[in-house]
Design a binder for these strands. Structure first.
Length: 498
RNA sequence: GCCCGCUUAGCUCAGCGGUUAGAGCAUCUGGCUGUUAACCAGAGGGUCGCAGGUUCGAAUCCUGCAGCGGGCGCCA
């Protein structure tokens, strides 16, 4: 911006005017003098309006309103949720040309002077000298209109929904959140590591995996006994898409100290809910020498840092989403950013639920997992703010979580948020070789695929901990959306590839 | 995987056994002293998701299927 404005102040040679083309930033005025136009984004114009200057602006048409002598176009270019009003005098630009081309969704470049309009709803507008059409948008078939559309409808046109302010706001917040996540960890000495996407084992045994193969599915090579001949597959053995980078993250943290992963994760579970995706993004920090309390402190500080970052850096987007989707959005974010999370041991949580006087669909008793209705009660009725539940019964948690001295609980924790439930799950890991092996045997797990994972307990093992944050679920909280399909650009879920 | 709901014009929806299926917005046409979801008038636009059944008669009732949405489970 600064550079292009300086350029505009330079003088240029006299000469004949070039034909306007899409990449032309020249403009001829009376006398045949050629000027360079600056080509600011709409965000730059709002940040520092170059009133009275000749500009070239490019974007997509949001709406057009035509009166007898003049037409108004609202132009958006993605740089801000705000639109730029263009004024087209029918004396300069024929009404026929306007009506033939300037429809909602069409893309154009305009040249014109920025005029201040202090007595109008918008602060300024472009008095258009001329425009060119990049791409038309036939109004009889273009799906988007100037009126609001349902999120369900927009899900069917995932290639066009980035044209809406709703999705511009969401994807800007998603971008800002990703940046803030890196910022938080980088400023605190964490190393960003890339754990593999292709994995050899169905680690954790729980989630269903997507199998990856180069074998011809219609003619699988088989052994005489009918087994599939995986030695002919690409890796010489079965391969899958990762369901978590945690096990590799632990190995990396045993050398690098504090690490985090931030990447895609794949689950082949046919869950038809507003909270599940087959491909989603997860952040998994893993810290050597961290116990459960330190990790819960980190998780709370992390979530508050991210929430504050979005409040500070994405006010415009939050205001838009608050106005159109969730009245309490900013209020909720501020509350989370400011107040300490309530910490309850699992045993305390069960006690509170038992004494609540509520009749739950699933009864609460020590040893059973907390259901969605229980989490909702704890967060929304009991605490009124985020809750961390820790020290769960070992039977309902994963094999790698560290056993507590009581013999019946593990050092696990979940962070429960208003509206979205569990946003973080984490634990101190079992760093003692014998205990880990015994846990796996109790569960009937074959330790063979976990030799490397066990090995790091044999050589220089240390107490360590980590957690996982589901990016899309946290984005539900930050944006006020209620379906994870609306916070990822192109969703993949059971039976659907947007 | 289990349960519930929805599917009518490009979009959002009304009609829920009885003439030729409606509204707003969008589109098109005309009008309008610069509009702000502009406004005013008019026009075009529908195999009422698909298949079958009940009935003198089905958008409407029943069955199956499909798609979408939601609740629960699993989880992040």
């Amino acid at each position: 911006m600064e550079q292009s404005r300086r350029r505009q102040r330079l003088f240029f040679q006299r000469g004949k005017c070039e034909e306007l083309s899409w990449n032309s930033n020249l403009w001829k005025i009376a006398g045949g003098i050629l000027y360079f136009c600056s080509v600011p984004s709409i965000a730059e114009i709002y940040a520092s309006p170059p009133i009275g200057q000749l500009l070239k602006v490019e974007g997509w048409i949001r709406t057009r309103r035509t009166t007898r002598t003049v037409s108004f176009v609202e132009l958006q270019d993605g740089s801000t949720l705000k639109a730029l009003q263009l004024v087209l005098s029918h004396e300069k630009i024929s009404l026929d040309r306007i009506e033939a081309t300037l429809h909602t969704g069409a893309s154009i470049a305009v040249w014109g002077i920025l005029r201040s309009t202090p007595d109008r709803p918008q602060p300024f507008e472009i008095e258009v000298e001329d425009f060119i059409l990049y791409g038309e948008a036939d109004p009889t078939t273009y799906p988007l209109q100037k009126k609001a559309h349902s999120l369900e409808f927009l899900r069917e046109i995932s290639h066009l929904r980035p044209r809406t302010r709703t999705f511009q706001a969401i994807f800007r917040i998603r971008s800002g959140l990703s940046f803030a996540i890196h910022q938080y960890f980088q400023e605190r000495g964490f190393v960003y590591v890339h754990t593999p996407i292709l994995t050899p084992s169905d680690c954790e045994g729980g989630g269903q995996l997507f199998q990856v193969t180069t074998l011809a599915l219609e003619a699988l090579p088989r052994h005489p006994d009918g087994r599939i001949a995986y030695e002919k597959d690409f890796f010489g053995r079965p391969a899958y898409l990762t369901v978590s980078g945690q096990l590799e993250g632990e190995m990396l943290s045993m050398g690098l100290g504090k690490i985090y992963t931030f990447g895609p994760t794949f689950r082949a579970e046919p869950s038809h809910t507003p909270r599940h995706l087959a491909e989603f993004w997860m952040i998994e920090p893993e810290m050597a020498f961290y116990d459960l309390d330190m990790t819960m402190d980190l998780a709370e500080d992390f979530l508050q840092f991210l929430t504050k970052a979005i409040l500070q850096r994405h006010r415009e987007e939050l205001e838009f989403l608050r106005e159109h989707y969730e009245e309490k959005l900013i209020h909720e974010l501020e509350k989370v950013a400011e107040s300490r999370f309530i910490r309850l041991s699992y045993t305390e949580a069960i006690d509170i639920l038992n004494k609540s006087g509520k009749s739950f669909q699933f009864p609460t008793s020590w040893g059973s997992d907390l259901q969605a209705e229980h989490e909702r009660y704890l967060v929304e009725e009991y605490a009124g703010q985020p809750v961390i539940v820790y020290n769960y019964p070992k039977e309902i948690k994963a094999f790698y979580m560290r056993q507590n001295d009581d013999g019946r609980t593990v050092a696990a924790f979940d962070v429960l948020f208003p509206r979205i439930g569990e946003v973080i799950g984490g634990s101190q890991r079992e760093e003692r070789y014998e205990q880990l092996l015994r846990r796996m045997e109790e569960r009937g797990m074959d330790p063979f695929p976990y030799q490397n994972y066990l090995d790091i307990r044999r050589y220089g093992s240390v107490p360590h901990s980590g957690f996982g944050l589901g990016l899309e679920r946290f984005l539900l909280f930050l944006t006020g959306m209620t379906n994870v399909r609306d916070v990822i650009p192109f969703f993949r879920s059971a039976g659907q590839m947007a």
